[in-house]
Design a protein around this nucleic acid. Sequence first.
DNA 1: GCTATTCTGTACTTATTAGTACATAACGAA
DNA 2: TTCGTTATGTACTAATAAGTACAGAATAGC
Lengths: 191, 191
Amino acid sequence: MARPRSFDPDNVLEIARQVFWQKGFQATSLDEITAASGVAKPSLYAAFGDKNALFLKVLDRYHDGILGWAERTLAQPVPAREAIRQWLTGFIPYCSGEKGQRGCLSINSATDGSLDQAEFRKSIERYNRRLEELLRARLRADRAEFRKGFDPDVTAHTIMVVHAGLLALAHQRPDSKRVKAVIDQVLGLLA
Amino acid sequence: MARPRSFDPDNVLEIARQVFWQKGFQATSLDEITAASGVAKPSLYAAFGDKNALFLKVLDRYHDGILGWAERTLAQPVPAREAIRQWLTGFIPYCSGEKGQRGCLSINSATDGSLDQAEFRKSIERYNRRLEELLRARLRADRAEFRKGFDPDVTAHTIMVVHAGLLALAHQRPDSKRVKAVIDQVLGLLA
DNA sequence: GCTATTCTGTACTTATTAGTACATAACGAA
DNA sequence: TTCGTTATGTACTAATAAGTACAGAATAGC
């Protein structure tokens, strides 16, 4: 009953993610997104709202993707330590080499002082909380695998810190061997 | 033999640091720096060059301050583990609570995709390299304090990762107790 | 084919901001 | 005091970018 959309919104969000991820929220202009996606500004505004709303959708999508993968990886029927090792190891391609350069969209956004928009912060906080909950739940459930006095809550948070640190330092494109060595050493805390 | 400067450049760099640290490089306009410092733009340009050059000076100053403090702390005549504990503990006020909100200027800059200026990257990389060298040198020197097979190089890097992670997550204003617990747990690797 | 409705593209407005031109003020030296 | 020199402040330019007005295109139903 009206003219149909000439683009796939999901596809545009994917393209927008790449641009935002590479250049950051502030430095990305909507003109760059129209150039990359072929969708003109009025259509972007109609479909996603303003720049903030578009970025928020991109960020939520990014978070959901990682959370989904974390859920699957951490639910595997292997020892908790092995599941967490696989989870952390899965980040190596994003923490090292050329691809590491861009780091993590969530952390890049969290460290961007200009994004004090409450909604961005909320999205990031919820993401971090959920991720840590996944780790904590797994460590608590398999507590019997560890030594006496093992503290699953502190350990879950430590792993979050290491995870954030690896992705923060990823911009230096470290060698994947160094990243792996750090992961192996930190997993020594799971005993 | 000419009109003297009406401001202290060092003082202006200090003020500029606060503004850049709070809002980030991109989001900080020179007008905000003139407003905060009382120094008009032409004077800023004459004294420091353009916005990039000013920020680079601010960043280098920031790095030098932290490196100087790290050198002093890590050179103390106490066991390496204790020196490193003191060094990490010293970051707690910057990793937690209200003050943690702004995070670390260096990491904030490293994760800002718009700063692909080669000189910014170089300053940050040199800073990280020197910091890691300080840790590595201390751990190597006191290697005898640790167990057989202890790897000072990997451990130094792991500490850098934890350090970066704490400062990346600082934006969430975690409780200082949580930060301390992570530090204590990680120091368990120094044995 | 015709119409109501929604989407698209061009071209605009408006605001912000990096950087500068220029007139003037403040100093040291003679 | 006067001159040469360097700093300061006002006011500008130019460029970039967010957001929008509007005319026209594409569809489904009639």
